[in-house]
Design a protein around this nucleic acid. Structure first.
Lengths: 124, 124, 124, 124
DNA sequence: GTGGTCTAGACCACA
DNA sequence: GTGGTCTAGACCACA
């Protein structure tokens, strides 16, 4: 599963947030199944070449939000499906969609034009 | 023109950038014509209830990028159209489109689904 | 407001959690009003003689849970009343009450006895 | 007796302590009689689906505190009643009562309200 | 001035 | 082995 993670320290996005979002995506996307064991914080930190605290912070948020369960002294696991997880992938996209649409409308770009633009970039 | 501006201080996006992007959009979208007079920094700051420094920073960037011209002792105006402005609306959308697509793909959302989602939000 | 805070580093309870719980109690208890400005992280850290990161962590959680709003470059404020805040004081007590009752019942202590015990300790 | 035990690994309370407190409660509450034979560490661990080391740690503490007696090659038993055990149920409740009261007072919940809340949860 | 991020390193509790 | 907490200190973005 480590191989599915990657992080860009020089992106504007904080590392802990990149990691958080990636793991959420993996869970919602189905690459990570409920009850599946996660690599330890130290393993992820070493693999990504970042400080364990940074990884821990991402994991902490995932726990707070109910995506991950920590078990004392044992590796963490993907939480069993609950209300939180009913989140469909599409609802995660919503903020970005709204943001894009409001900019497009302000620019006078039509829905049709926008869909063409998206189609063009989809393949890359 | 003030009425066209609005800003969300609790959004993740820095205020100065929100303001900058909105003004660019207004120019590219045609709501702001070349040579049109802009409100003063103070007026905008008061209207938006933000710190004048913040407005100033947005305006400074717009000047640096050639969107706005400052004239000694007189109100600033939208710059006369030059190379810089040939920017089409669609190229301004590009970063957000790329960002959206990469998240959608990670979530396993198909292009068709994405277009449906966008269609749904377009009307609001 | 600083004077309302205090923290015991040698308690088993993590400092950041003590602080978190105290601030929630102050909000729910009404000592902190909505929109009220909070001391800065650095001020609290200095007053409590703990590391700013520790304070920051408590505040971060409060933000995540909607109790506090952070505003870029400006002091944080108690969030305007929302769903989150509808929490009555009594619902915050619930976990401890349940825990106490289950131990009492296991010990064969009756409800009446338990209430006497609580009455005895209340004055102290 | 196994059926009287249960443990919640995702509770904040360490498992070994949950187990310890439960067994003490069973002894003080009279469900476990003096000289009564206890299940082996392995049996308890298997039944509760926890690490045997964890059970062992709880049992060790019970031995240290005189609640349980270990006998070479034979199952452990509940210790014969001695001074240690004169502990009344109510004194075991004391820490939790104090903790609950201090939180209630900070939240501005009155003694009367608290007793109503406890009454409500008692039946469940 | 405000808060946010990250690191390195120490030390602890739990299983 | 696992994760949790805390510190000291550096550096950055925003208002």
């Amino acid at each position: 599963m480590l191989a599915l993670l990657n992080v860009n320290p020089s992106s504007g996005e904080p590392i802990y947030r990149q990691l958080h979002d990636q793991i959420v995506s993996l869970i919602v996307g189905g690459q990570l199944q409920a009850e599946e064991v996660l690599p330890s914080v130290r393993q992820m930190a070493e693999f990504l070449a970042v400080n364990p605290m940074t990884v821990s912070r991402a994991v902490q948020q995932l726990v707070d939000q109910g995506w991950i369960e920590r078990r004392r002294g044992q590796p963490s696991i993907v939480a069993t499906r609950t209300d939180t997880h009913t989140t469909s992938g599409s609802s995660l996209l919503q903020p970005k969609i709204k943001d894009l649409i409001s900019q497009a409308q302000q620019l006078g770009v039509s829905l049709a034009e926008l869909e063409v633009l998206i189609g063009q970039h989809w393949q890359e």
